[in-house]
Nucleic acid binder design. Structure first.
Length: 1164
RNA sequence: GCCGAAGUGGCGGAAUUGGUAGACGCACACGACUCAAAAUCGUGCGGAGAAAUCCAUGAGAGUUCGAUUCUCUCCUUCGGCACCA
């Protein structure tokens, strides 16, 4: 026997395959077709590096196996030869790209043949061949004729170094993808392909194909379909506009949060367009718009840009809540996205929140987190749902830093609290619960800035699912005074104190865990719920939400307050109100309340009582104290207060009110009483109707304090809210009813839908779909590409396509390949070529000088293969296109390519195919039935291989040293096919040894021998290799064959049959070696057409199996038993093992588990 | 920020309807052959321990007789998109 000599063998079989046309394929109706495709390479001057063959080898293995399985396999190859490197080389050296390309293709061809791929070389294509690009041009004209190609002046990314317009996707972090130069923006007339018209088709098509998850997701993400609503926000106070009929149209994907819109944000682009139609903005605003637009053109990394903005001095109306909100112009809203304007919902969008915080705009929470309990308390199907309000107190004993919990009889522990009963408010309920359940009487319920949320779970006691609105408060014990707790309560649960560190471990309820998390978290980041939730009670949520804004320093707060008070109170409309809301934090409110009260008192004496009826014959009285301030605010809303109590009335309010009512002739129960004082509420609730005591949260007491005593709809946050109080019809119809009832308790998806319907019914907005996908910039101002076959004719007033018989429009020879300084392609400098006749009218016309992008030729190459490639292109000329041939081969059964092409190339070629399907040129809407991707091969150290880094491993050297088969097998063995791996030449040694062993096995082959052990291993290997190739798990397929070969090597003799099988299943990986061995074994025909071996299920079964024996889950012994052993027998054998006996320590096993063929597990 | 994937020996990596963690390969160590080296063949190779045994799959909890695999929380890395409203 000779030594294994890859050099000799490989050349021999490559010649054989070529001579016998082993892999050339004909359409054959009798056989199943299989079209396997790899991305055709770009023939660079550097040749192949070891990364290239990975996808080629993989698909070669699959193709060879399919061939052996009897399929008629089309596995073509070609070259995507238009490209920048060749062009840049031409600019540098003056060498014509066509010549260079020819040379490069020759080198690539040599290298590819050297690796023994089973390509059908007869169908080769080259995108730069005029016979080929004639059809690329024809197809482009189809787009043009169907109105899908159009020219548009638009800002493009311009690389000043490459002098080329770049598609968005070629810009990486503001830099040119190719050379790293910072990209500028320029306006340029560009040919565009209207891929956006195919957005839905491209999205839907993904449902019918088998793409790897990542590829599908990336396609979906790139198309970026989002459903939402377009909503009109009416504008008021627009300077320069005489009427009030102006609107801003916004797009939102979260119409359910519209109540939380506290400002309107407009892009500088949109604001500019307003200026253009006569909006008279202030100089400051104009200046900002100009600056912001300038900043846009300098393409610095966008994500680094800080949010800037300016108040436009206009007020918009939230069309649902009818509240006035300020309009801001800001750079964080993009002109080209959506409508160029958004509603700002700071509570539910991080960016809006950042902006609101920076400019002191209010935050209003309308969606609450919906926490669904898991496990035993999870909501159960088929149970009724009840909505409840629940209050919880986290009770802190500051004396020893402990917390008061309740322990139930079943050891469950929780905070103190309970359900809120009808008519009760949360604070009262909590107070009641604390006293009842714990006996503690001396405590303070502190207002908190905790977020409200919903809890969703099943309650066994009432056998219902509950949607609980969870209030929770921080409570401080003032002393340890206690009264006795009733026996019934004690039977239910018993109070106990635990130290801070123990709380989390002790409490058992999910909701309480969340509360504790919120309670202990230092920076409440959780306030921005930009995830799905439940629409909650906005008034309460709002109050809580606002607390965040004032996470400001004292100085900032003081400054804000000073600003507020120093400005005249004539700006009640619009955003100025926000400043007072900003300082709603308790102690600050208190302090300023005191200051304010002093001011009020001194002014008070100047005013005498004034009695006027407010509209709708409602009767109102305003309290003493800071009443003047409240009155002023009410007056600003256009209403007149009816009566203000004087300072002297302060201590005899009840009598004074009685007196006033007598004068008016009304009952005391009929008057509305406005106050910002808690004391008033306590004092007067006996004589007045409690429902008509209105808390004014813009005065002395903050919202939270008033809310402790009054229901939410009786605490007003803005003076404007008074309108809502007095106009019942407005209250319901204008949307506030919606706010509190319509969406309350709905989950996000339903709330969205319901809101959209509501907006549509009320003609405020409508459902709208938005896409991220932009039209494809098809032009490039470069030489090395397909000329665009259009001429511009003045007389025909536009672009005229060249007639088909004038195609191909060949790329003319030029002297210089450098684009002109003004960014035109070198073709533009060839006046002779540019000047032409109009094919339509015969008059003078000018040719388009832009060329097509690289993506054009690769958008249909798989169709060219199916129709016969280069050879047939040449032979058939205009009759090349053949739908019958396409019907035979399309769609591509399996397409493998790089992750870097799963977005653009895949999307663009799918777009072309979809279009060609629509006009009847191709038989299937989707071009590829299946798409997979390979991981990159990296140089040592995890870097990309590149010539500039000098870390390229050359396949020529590897083949020289180890042979093509070893290289192929190693590339397949390196690691999981879809993951990146580092190259390691050392690893190749192991694979070479493996092939050596296979070769050496020849010596042991004998005719008459049976070895059942090897036979079993062999059939297991056949099974595994078959399955693993189909799943692209090449590494484990080879590992399994290595195991088999190791075993065969240990045997003295092996049978011919078994060895033959091995040669067959190894053939796809190491085809040259296996052809040679196949020949040695005495076969005449090539192995490539032999059948793929089938494993015998009977032979896979082993006669003996090793069972693991576990005691309490730990391995204690293994026993070898007959494979068909009975369960009882297995258990008995296991229990009789010495090791097991030792671990049993004489005890009886509680349970013995038997898993057939795997283990016996003994539980003690 | 959003979406996706992944964390296992010195290294590349095996093992998922939950069932003996570390297959296969590299590197390393020892031995055989050799005057010697290479090649080849054999043995060993997660950590601790003399051993019994214990500990180990990013961290922590949970479910289970049993968890790399399932659930929850967190950390890290990589990939994609990005002020996309």
């Amino acid at each position: 026997m000779q030594k294994y000599d890859p050099k000799k063998i490989e050349k021999k079989w490559q010649k054989y395959w070529e001579k016998n046309k082993t892999f050339e394929v004909q359409e054959d109706a009798k056989k199943d077709k299989f079209y396997s495709l790899i991305e055709f390479p770009y023939p660079s001057g550097e040749g192949l590096h070891v990364g290239h063959p990975r996808p080629f080898t993989a698909m070669d293995v699959i193709s060879r196996k399919k061939r052996m399985e009897g399929k008629n396999v089309l596995f073509p190859i070609g070259f995507d030869a238009f490209g920048l490197p060749t062009e840049n080389f031409a600019i540098k050296t003056g060498k014509p790209p066509a010549e260079v390309t020819k040379k490069n293709i020759a080198n690539f061809t040599r290298q590819l043949k050297m690796l023994g791929f089973s390509f059908d070389w007869s169908r080769q294509v080259d995108t730069t061949d005029p016979n080929y690009y004639k059809w690329t041009q024809k197809l482009f004209l189809q787009f043009f004729k169907h109105g899908l190609a159009y020219k548009k002046n638009q800002p493009i990314n311009w690389c000043p170094k490459d002098k080329i317009g770049l598609a968005n996707e070629e810009v990486v972090n503001g830099n040119c993808e190719r050379c790293g130069t910072p990209v500028e923006k320029r306006n340029k007339e560009q040919w565009m392909l209207a891929i956006t018209k195919y957005a839905d088709k491209l999205l839907d098509g993904l449902k019918n194909v088998d793409y790897i998850e990542r590829a599908r997701l990336q396609q979906e993400n790139w198309i970026g379909k989002s459903e939402g609503a377009e909503v009109d926000f009416p504008l008021r106070m627009v300077p320069g506009q005489t009427d009030d009929k102006h609107f801003v149209k916004i797009f939102t994907t979260r119409p359910d949060t519209i109540f939380g819109a506290t400002f309107l944000a407009v892009s500088p682009e949109l604001a500019k367009s307003w200026l253009d139609i006569g909006w008279q903005a202030s100089e400051e605003v104009k200046k900002y718009i100009t600056q912001a637009l300038e900043a846009r053109t300098a393409v610095t990394a966008r994500e680094e840009q800080e949010k800037t903005g300016i108040s436009a001095g206009i007020v918009a109306i939230n069309p649902v809540s009818k509240k006035e909100i300020p309009v801001w112009i800001t750079n964080y809203v993009m002109g080209e996205v959506g409508t160029g304007a958004i509603m700002g919902v700071p509570a539910h969008d991080q960016r809006d929140f950042d902006f609101a915080k920076k400019f002191g705009l209010p935050v209003k929470q309308v969606v609450m987190q919906n926490i669904v309990v898991a496990g035993a308390a999870a909501p159960r199907e088929g149970k009724d749902l009840v909505q409840r309000k629940v209050v919880t107190g986290i009770i802190h004993n500051p004396k020893n830093d402990t917390f008061l919990l309740l322990r139930r009889a079943d050891k469950e522990s929780s905070f103190v609290g309970g359900t809120i009963e009808n008519g009760e408010d949360a604070i009262t309920a909590l107070r009641r619960e604390i006293v009842e359940e714990t006996g503690y009487t001396d405590f303070e319920i502190k207002s908190t800035s905790f977020p409200n949320f919903f809890g969703n779970g099943y309650k066994l006691r009432i056998d219902k699912n509950c949607l609980d609105f969870e209030y929770f408060y921080a409570v401080e014990l003032k002393s340890e005074d206690r009264q006795e707790v009733s026996k019934e309560e004690l039977a239910k649960h018993e109070p106990f104190l635990v130290p801070r560190a123990e709380v989390s471990k002790t409490i058992t309820l999910t909701m309480h865990q969340y509360m504790w998390k919120y309670y202990t978290e230092e920076k409440p980041k959780y306030l921005i719920f930009d995830f799905d939730g439940v629409i909650g009670n906005t008034f309460e949520a709002c109050a809580k939400a606002q607390m965040v804004i004032d996470n400001k320093s004292k100085e900032e707060a003081v400054e804000a307050m000073t600003r507020y008070f120093s400005s005249k109170p004539n700006h009640a409309k619009g955003h100025s109100l926000t400043e007072i809301e900003m300082v709603a934090k308790l102690d600050w409110t208190r302090r300023f309340g005191e200051e304010m009260a002093k001011l009020e008192y001194s002014l008070f004496s100047k005013f005498n009582k004034e009695i006027k009826n407010i509209p709708n014959t409602k009767v109102a009285i305003i309290s003493a104290g800071s009443g003047l301030y409240i009155r002023n605010r009410i007056e600003e809303t256009g209403l007149n207060p009816s009566h203000v109590l004087t300072f002297e009335d302060h201590h005899s309010k009840e009598e004074k009110i009685e007196q006033v009512c007598k004068d008016w002739g009304v009952s005391m129960k009929d008057v509305y009483y406005f106050t910002d004082s808690k004391a008033d509420v306590y004092e007067l609730e006996d004589c007045l109707d409690r429902k008509k005591i209105i808390g004014c949260a813009w005065g002395y007491c903050g919202y939270d304090l008033l809310r402790e005593l009054l229901p939410e709809n009786q605490v007003l946050k803005n003076p404007e809210d008074i309108h809502l109080l007095f106009a019942d019809s407005v209250y319901e119809n204008e949307g506030v009813a919606v706010e509190s009832e319509f969406l309350n308790g709905l989950k996000t998806p339903e709330a969205k839908q319901k809101m959209i319907s509501w907006l549509e019914e009320n003609r405020i907005g409508k459902k709208q779909i938005n896409y991220k996908l932009r039209d494809w910039v098809f032009s490039r101002q470069r030489y090395w590409g397909e000329p665009i076959p259009l001429v511009h004719c003045e007389k025909c007033s536009g672009w005229v396509p060249l007639p088909e018989d004038e195609l191909p429009l060949k790329l003319p020879k030029v002297e210089k390949y450098q684009p002109t300084d003004n960014g035109e392609s070198p073709l533009a400098a060839m006046e002779k070529w540019v000047k032409t006749k109009c094919p339509n009218c015969g008059g003078p016309a000018r040719r388009e000088t832009d060329t097509m992008p690289n993506w054009a030729g690769s958008s249909w190459y798989f169709l060219a293969y199916a129709m016969g490639g280069e050879k047939r292109l040449k032979e058939k000329g205009d009759k090349f296109w053949d739908k019958e041939m396409l019907k035979h081969w399309q769609p591509v059964d399996w397409y493998n390519g790089g992750m870097e092409h799963t977005v653009l190339h895949l999307l663009y070629s799918r777009f072309w195919n979809q279009f060609l399907y629509d006009i009847g040129m191709v038989p299937t809407p989707e071009p590829y039935a299946k798409r997979t991707s390979h991981g990159m091969i990296l140089a040592k150290g995890g870097e990309k291989m590149s010539k500039s880094k000098g870390n390229v491993v050359n396949p020529d050297e590897m083949v020289e040293q180890f042979g093509a088969d070893a290289l192929r097998a190693y590339i397949m063995f390196m690691g999981p096919f879809d993951q990146a791996v580092e190259w390691d030449t050392n690893g190749l040694v192991g694979v070479k040894r493996f092939l050596d062993k296979v070769w050496n096995l020849q010596e042991k082959v004998e005719n008459k021998i049976t070895d059942t052990k090897i036979e079993t291993a062999l059939h297991q290997t056949i099974k595994k290799v078959t399955e693993d190739i189909d799943a692209m798990r090449f590494n484990t397929a080879i590992a399994k064959m290595m195991e088999l070969v190791n075993e065969m090597s240990k045997a003295d003799k092996i049978s011919v049959v078994n060895y033959t099988y091995l040669v067959q299943i190894l053939a796809p990986f190491a085809p040259h070696l296996c052809e040679e061995l196949w020949d040695v074994l005495g076969h005449e025909k090539s192995l490539a057409c032999e059948s793929w071996p089938q494993f015998n299920p009977e032979l896979i079964k082993e006669s003996e199996v090793t069972l693991a024996v576990q005691v309490n889950g730990k391995l204690r012994d293994t026993i070898t038993v007959a494979a068909d052993i009975s369960e009882e027998e297995a258990k008995r054998t296991a229990l009789s093992s010495e090791a097991v006996k030792k671990w049993l320590e004489g005890k009886e096993p509680k349970k013995v588990i038997y898993v057939k063929g795997k283990l016996v597990s003994v539980v003690v």
